[in-house]
């Protein structure tokens, strides 16, 4: 059985009267990609900052690799890699100089830095640009360099705070590939994101965070299953059918008008589909298309966040 690499217990951070993080608890097992998913201002970054020893918690504890972060911050920092959300590389230094600086700060020797830099810069398509100042890199290149810097110590535990934020599709794909590869090599990764697709594609477990609290925590597939009623059928008829008429079908919870199509939320998509066929027959119109979909993580997320707000 995999042991717990990260244990967070009742973690709280107050800024005056504001509770940025309010009693968060979870565990991350070795080899997991654990996602913290939440809207902007949910407390994701504050949580990561406390977990990585950048800021002190108001109360609660974080244990990484069996050591408490408050008592052994430096020892833990030597064994983890951090990609902070807003943190940047030094734009007045070249890509290679950034790698050298952070390699030294991680305590690597020159040979290790040279070897790791070459490997990482090549993997993220920056090797040819390593002698250019980072000021002249595109945003995607800077973010890839930032990831290279974070990965230089070859740590077994990684904290990646919004690694894909604001990136173009190509850079985002490259970074996701690297994260998947790191996970397949047995590293434990804690990833924060507000991107549902990233969380769904990458994470083995997800904590949905809102207003500083965990709203739900499970694997993406289980979270989606929990919300059976958020399955839906998207249907298109040859002529218009009113939302009220669809709502008369049993098991339809909600209907949304999507232009020429209708989205019917239900926990029984098969039954609803048959009902839709009956409507088409009764009105002598054609059922042009009908697709059933299970709830996406985005549906789950929006549902959780809205229910908390309400």
């Amino acid at each position: 059985m995999n042991k717990d690499v990260i244990v967070v217990e009742n973690l709280t951070k107050h800024y005056g009267s504001l509770k940025a993080v309010d009693g968060i608890s979870f565990k991350v097992k070795a080899g997991e990609i654990f996602g913290i998913l939440g809207p902007n201002g949910a407390g994701k970054t504050t949580t990561v900052r406390m977990m990585t020893g950048v800021i002190s918690p108001t109360s609660g504890s974080v244990t990484i690799l069996g050591k408490d972060i408050r008592e052994h911050a430096l020892k833990i920092k030597e064994q983890i890699s951090v990609l902070p959300e807003t943190a940047n590389v030094y734009v007045d230094l070249t890509g290679q100089q950034n790698m050298d600086l952070f390699g030294k700060l991680y305590g690597l020797n020159n040979d290790e830095i040279t070897c790791r830099s070459r490997e990482l810069l090549k993997e993220l398509d920056l090797y040819e640009h390593r002698h250019r100042k980072a000021r002249f890199y595109s945003k995607g290149m800077k973010q890839r360099l930032s990831l290279c810097v974070a990965l230089i110590p070859d740590a077994k535990v990684l904290f990646l705070d919004e690694p894909n934020s604001g990136l173009d599709a190509e850079s985002s794909k490259q970074i996701k590939n690297v994260i998947s590869q790191l996970a397949s090599e047995g590293r434990t990764i804690l990833l924060t994101t507000h991107n549902m697709i990233d969380a769904q594609e990458l994470c083995t477990k997800v904590a949905v965070v809102n207003q500083g609290r965990i709203a739900a925590i499970d694997s993406p597939i289980n979270l989606r299953r929990t919300f059976q009623e958020r399955q839906y059928v998207i249907v298109e008829f040859s002529e218009s059918v009113s939302v009220e008429q669809i709502m008369t079908l049993p098991d339809v919870n909600e209907v949304r008008n999507l232009g020429t199509r209708l989205q019917c939320f239900t926990s029984q998509p098969g039954k609803v589909l048959m009902g839709l066929v009956e409507i088409a027959k009764e009105q002598d119109i054609q059922l042009v298309s009908a697709n059933t979909e299970s709830a996406t993580l985005e549906d789950v997320f929006l549902r959780l966040v809205n229910s908390k707000h309400n």
Binding site: K77, V82, P84, T86, A87, V89, Y90, F102, L105, Y106
Partner: peptide
């Protein structure tokens, strides 16, 4: 301002 300080603080250096 450049957000490089957070990176330094997250490094294993007091």
């Amino acid at each position: 301002r450049a957000h490089t300080l957070e990176r330094l603080v997250s490094m294993p250096i007091p």
